[in-house]
Design a protein around this nucleic acid. Structure first.
Lengths: 189, 189
DNA sequence: CCAGTTCTGGACTGGTTAGTCCATAACTCA
DNA sequence: TGAGTTATGGACTAACCAGTCCAGAACTGG
């Protein structure tokens, strides 16, 4: 058996970044293949179709990027950890504003693509659970007001993060976005 | 001179709704023409190109939809007025979740389309100014804590609104979104 | 009713799209 | 080394894309 000349995860990552930056519909297969350095045959053999590739990329994004975000939520003080999740989605001079791939998929696809919608919902649920645990941790330590529903606060945080990410795509400056994150976090106590 | 057989604003509205629901890239000219009940010639004669049409639709959305939002911000108590702007972007059973056309354009186009980005920035600025005035009004009446920067709070509200709209596109229930709006508003005082 | 103007439907184009298919190169294992 | 298997490159297709163009219909003003 002849071995593959590429790493599936590697090409998936590279293709994901293109969809992330340019959007699903706006990205042609040709652009995708060039970025992935892959032949058409290998692409279809490995991923099935452009649509299936997008779903695979979305799943990987949720597992890798949001998975990391979830892990980071357990380190240090709860408030600081939550702030860090906001901070890392806010672009810096070196890392330009790509926003959040899952959010892009939500806007572009979730409404008329049931499979994409389902993945997005799973991703949001996972994000919410991460925040929920962090909020509970903060309530135990007294950093966050204990009388409020942790679930509601977690959903508020998911929503707020999405808002900031939208504005980052619109070109808002880092400083303004950090200020918004501060106001958002202030609401917890 | 033979008169037009359509109202430019009317067909603009109808076409906008299609772009709003399905996205710019995903909508073919054919779909657009069918929804607008217009011939290709009339479309190109009136709007120039698909891209120019999108810009016109975006401008109209900002003027009409966001303009109305801005007006509503001046009625009644400041907090209630702000809450109403959130409420009216949250889908009901009768009005399904189309989100915000300007947000869709932000995600899909702002990054690589300078003209769309410019319009989006103008729209966001206008929204921010509306909220800023409402916040100042609320601070004068004591509904909103007076010590905080009205501009920062206004940007926080713009961001929060966008977050809620993203989640509405993901299919979040009205009840949950209203709860998030409440938590958001609580942060003002 | 007619001249002049403008709107409209539809044919047409050149380019691009996602996706298929196959001959052949490349590799493994015995 | 050679048989067997799999990956690969690239030609190919049919559909669709935005956009152009023009002949003729439809209307106005005189």
């Amino acid at each position: 058996m002849r071995p593959r000349e590429f790493e599936p995860e590697d090409v998936l990552d590279r293709g994901m970044r293109v969809l992330w930056a340019r959007g699903y519909e706006a990205t042609s297969l040709e652009e995708l293949l060039e970025a992935m350095d892959l032949s058409k045959s290998s692409f279809y053999e490995t991923f099935g179709s452009k649509h299936d590739f997008m779903l695979a990329a979305l799943e990987r994004y949720i597992n890798v990027v949001l998975g990391q975000l979830g892990k980071d939520l357990h380190k240090g003080s709860a408030r600081e950890a939550i702030f860090r999740t906001f901070d890392c989605m806010i672009p810096t001079r070196d890392a330009p504003a790509n926003g959040c791939f899952m959010q892009n998929c939500t806007i572009e696809l979730a409404q008329h693509d049931p499979e994409a919608r389902e993945k997005v919902r799973q991703g949001l649920k996972r994000l919410e659970e991460g925040y929920s645990r962090a909020v509970l941790r903060g309530q135990e330590s007294g950093e966050i007001a204990g009388k409020r529903d942790a679930r509601a606060l977690a959903q508020y945080l998911v929503s707020s993060l999405n808002g900031i990410v939208v504005l980052s795509r619109a070109g808002f400056e880092r400083k303004k976005l950090l200020k918004i994150a501060e106001v958002t976090l202030d609401a917890l106590k």
